[in-house]
C-alpha cells in the first residue's frame, strides 16, 4: 500500500484558537443521526460558526481553501465520534498541527490518513500569528524530516514513532495488517480463559 504513503502535507493554514475544543463542537450530535458520513463537511463547527456571526475562521474568506488547521491544547477532546475528523476531512482538512490532541480523535484522524502533529505552545502561537498575517502562505509538514515550515519559520515536530511509521509506510489504515494474523489471533482467543467461560 505504498501508494498511500503520506510523507509530507503542504497547504494553506487556518488558525483555530482555543484550548479543549471538543468533538461536540466540531460536529454537533444532531449530525450523528445518520447511517453514513456523507455531507458532514458543511456542518463542521456549525454551532460555533452560528454563534460567531460570521467571525469564525471557517467563515473567513481569507482562509478559504485551507488544508491545515493550527490548533491549541487538547483539540478533539470528548466524544469518540469519528464524525469529527470525517467532517473536517470533508471540509478540506488534510492535517492538523497542535499543542496536544484528544487521544481518540488523534487515532480516528490517523485511520483516515490525517496526521496530527505536535509543536510546543510558543511555536503554535507563532505559527497561528504567521498564518493570520499571511493566509496565502503555504505550510509544509514534512514527516520524514519531522519539520513544520512556513516561510522563514521552521520548527521540529513531535509525532509518536509508530504513528509516523504507519504514515510513511502507507499503513495508516491498520485493517489490512490486522487481517494478516488470523492464526495468531485465534491462538490468543483460544488461550484466554474467559472466552470459554472458564470451563476449566
Amino acid at each position: 500500500m505504498t501508494d498511500s504513503a503520506i510523507t509530507r502535507v503542504a497547504g494553506r493554514g487556518l488558525p483555530l484558537r482555543g484550548n479543549d475544543i471538543d468533538t461536540d463542537r466540531i460536529i454537533p450530535a444532531r449530525y450523528l443521526r445518520a447511517v453514513t458520513f456523507d455531507g458532514l463537511g458543511e456542518h463542521a463547527f456549525e454551532d460555533d460558526r452560528e454563534q460567531a456571526n460570521g467571525a469564525h475562521p471557517f467563515d473567513d474568506p481569507r482562509f478559504a481553501g485551507a488544508a491545515i488547521l493550527v490548533v491549541n491544547n487538547n483539540f478533539g477532546s470528548g466524544s469518540s465520534r469519528e464524525h469529527a475528523p470525517q467532517a473536517l476531512m470533508r471540509w478540506g482538512v488534510r492535517a492538523l498541527i497542535g499543542q496536544s490532541f484528544g487521544e481518540i480523535f488523534f487515532g480516528n484522524s490517523l485511520t483516515l490518513g490525517i496526521p496530527c502533529v505536535v509543536l510546543a505552545e510558543s511555536e503554535i502561537v507563532q505559527l497561528q500569528d504567521a498564518v493570520a498575517a499571511e493566509p496565502t502562505a503555504e505550510i509544509t509538514i514534512d514527516l520524514e524530516e519531522r519539520a513544520v515550515t512556513l516561510g522563514d519559520l521552521s520548527f521540529s515536530l513531535q509525532i509518536p514513532d509508530p504513528v509516523r511509521d504507519s504514515l510513511l509506510s502507507g499503513r495508516w489504515d491498520a485493517l489490512g495488517e490486522l487481517l494478516g494474523a488470523p492464526d495468531e489471533t485465534a491462538a490468543v482467543h483460544d488461550r484466554l480463559p474467559y472466552v470459554s467461560g472458564f470451563s476449566g
Binding site: 450523528l32 447511517v35 504507519s166 495468531e184
Partner: peptide, 25 residues
C-alpha cells in the same frame, strides 16, 4: 497478538459492544 511493523500492538479485544450511532458506517 503481535507487534505491528509500526511498533503498535495488535491487541485482541475480548468484549466488543456496539450501539446504533457509531456502528452503521
Amino acid at each position: 497478538v503481535r507487534e505491528l511493523a509500526s511498533g503498535q500492538t495488535q491487541l485482541f479485544i475480548g468484549l466488543h459492544l456496539v450501539h446504533e450511532v457509531t456502528s452503521p458506517q
